[in-house]
Design a protein around this nucleic acid. Structure first.
Lengths: 334, 334
DNA sequence: CTGAAAGCGCTTACAG
DNA sequence: CTGAAAGCGCTTACAG
């Protein structure tokens, strides 16, 4: 069924070496030879056997993208971009989800047989440690997010401290004084949440406010349900908040739901800000003010960086700070 | 670095054959031999080279999941389940997105080198045809959705006619009489939308109503933006609808946004129903009444079916009808 | 510029 | 129950 190099060689009356040269576009093939071989290649519809190529060359043309949850919109949107980018380089992306489970994450990233299939790895870590990563034997790794910083790896992130500072300042500028923080820091995701909490606290400090303990709610996950639970808790306070700074849009959307349930007007009674700029937040009612990281840039940087490594260039691990902007929408400015 | 079978064989003082037998758990190995080999295997941390195994055995342990858009929540949620299911069988899932582009879809599904890597395929088709699929040379295919029906392939779907009928009847039972249909049938997705339109029309007919032309809006895609555009068009009508039956939740969420913008009360002024039961719709305001297909069941059926094929069982192509239920929420019953 | 040949690491008839 | 050996389809030094 599948035609082999050898068969093509026989048909064209040359050696497999020459056919391989033509298939792979090497220079040193006489024009006539090339034409003759190419004709046969086309005629029989030759398709290289990727497995054989991989076994021989040691490169599979596949990279793994490891994210906690593929169905969390932020990761789904990012995945889409990364698949598109990788494809432009002729690479296939295999998506692995870890559910943030430590054992599973280690297995996927460090675990032998599977991990060895991939030429490289783009990883959004949750609980895996720098030490784990250092003892990894496979190809290059590019890290996403803020869970692991300065570990000596290529790394793409945004300036979360600055972003949270900007978001908080936006709320302060609107006259809000009891700004609650949801998801700071959460059970998992300490890295991300800690940085965002820093920006939040810095902004408050600049306005000579201190964050009351009762307005800081940490959550186990960063899902809608967690945001809803946190909002319920906050709104039951004797002195409830007049604004919510949520560590991501899902939390914010969960909180928004509860605000509606309790008959609060958003943003009049309660302003809400999220992080991530997922599509849902653009269509919520009211639409969500959020920190919008440049996901296309993040995807492009991650893939480009990995490709460089794969080509053996640029041994110095680098941290890239991607762009973001505060997207002001109706959940803060009615 | 990576230890080979041969090295293990030498260390254990047996042939590669025997080591291979132990690794693959074949019976005919003497207990003592097995123990000795296993000890070496463990000690050196042997990991099989998947590429070599694949090249030799012809099976890669990878299946492809081909969906139009990974960041459409329905597909993201389904993907999550399918990855989980496949993993239970020791299979790796590679996700490919086609953007519904015909050429891209053919390339991914039929295209040689890449497609040949996978042992099988779970495909949510958009524009690829049955004939295309028939001429495909690779492993077995399981189809999802309603774009291709009765093509002689294994196929998982829900009863869309019945579901749309039930949703429409729900609206009629609530006293709605001007029920608009958004996304029936759309530019792409004719299969799905046509079936849902059938159920809608059947329900109307049963109540001696005919669907006015002006209340049937087809859309190019099934995204939020399309739903918003359709809703704007419908609400500008001299006699606007009192209910919207949307072909999926994204359309419904887009329409809901517009309803809010125009100051309409949902469901009092306008009831809205979607399809898919994506998580966003549970947290929208108001939460979305929707047809909730059993995604876990769909994923389980699809993977199980593919695994059977892979084992060479059950040559008869079968159509599986998965469960669904109408999830009644606040967008229809305030 | 091209050929003959080794070998990537594994599985699997074929003997014994 | 185990061994020696072929071969999956390719790439790539090594000669010429």
């Amino acid at each position: 069924m599948a035609v082999t190099l050898r068969e093509v060689a026989k048909l064209a009356g040359v050696s497999v070496r020459t056919v391989s040269n033509v298939v792979n576009g090497f220079h040193h093939v006489a024009p006539q030879t090339r034409a003759r071989v190419q004709e046969v290649l086309d005629r029989v519809g030759y398709q290289p056997n990727l497995m054989a190529r991989t076994l021989r060359s040691g490169r599979s043309g596949m990279i793994a993208l490891v994210v906690p949850e593929i169905d969390v919109p932020y990761f789904a949107e990012l995945t889409r971009s990364i698949i598109g980018q990788a494809e432009a380089y002729g690479y296939t992306v295999v998506v692995d989800q870890t559910d943030g489970d430590a054992a599973r994450e280690r297995e996927v990233v460090l675990g032998g047989a599977r991990a060895a299939l991939f030429d490289g790895l783009i990883l959004s870590p949750v609980s895996i440690t720098v030490d784990d990563l250092r003892q990894r034997s496979g190809g290059p790794v590019v890290l996403l997010g803020e869970q692991i910083v300065d570990g000596g790896f290529d790394h793409i992130m945004i300036d979360n401290v600055a972003a949270a500072y900007e978001a908080t300042t936006h709320l302060l500028g609107l006259g809000r004084r009891r700004i609650a923080a949801i998801g700071y820091p959460s059970g998992e995701w300490d890295g991300t949440t800690t940085m965002r909490a820093q920006g939040y606290l810095r902004a408050l400090a600049e306005w000579d406010l201190e964050a009351p303990e009762d307005l800081l709610v940490s959550t186990r996950y960063l899902h809608r349900a967690d945001g809803a639970a946190a909002a319920r808790q906050l709104l039951a306070l004797p002195e409830p908040p007049d604004a919510l700074l949520c560590c991501n849009d899902l939390l914010a959307l969960g909180a928004l739901k509860v605000a509606h349930e309790q008959g609060l007007a958003v943003p009049e009674d309660l302003a809400i800000v999220g992080f991530d700029d997922i599509e849902d937040g653009r269509y919520s009612h009211p639409s969500l003010t959020t920190i919008s990281p440049d996901k296309a840039q993040i995807a492009a940087l991650a893939v480009e960086r990995l490709m460089r490594r794969l080509r053996g260039e640029d041994a110095e691990p680098t941290e890239f700070v991607a762009n973001y902007q505060l997207a002001v929408r109706a959940s803060t400015v009615g």
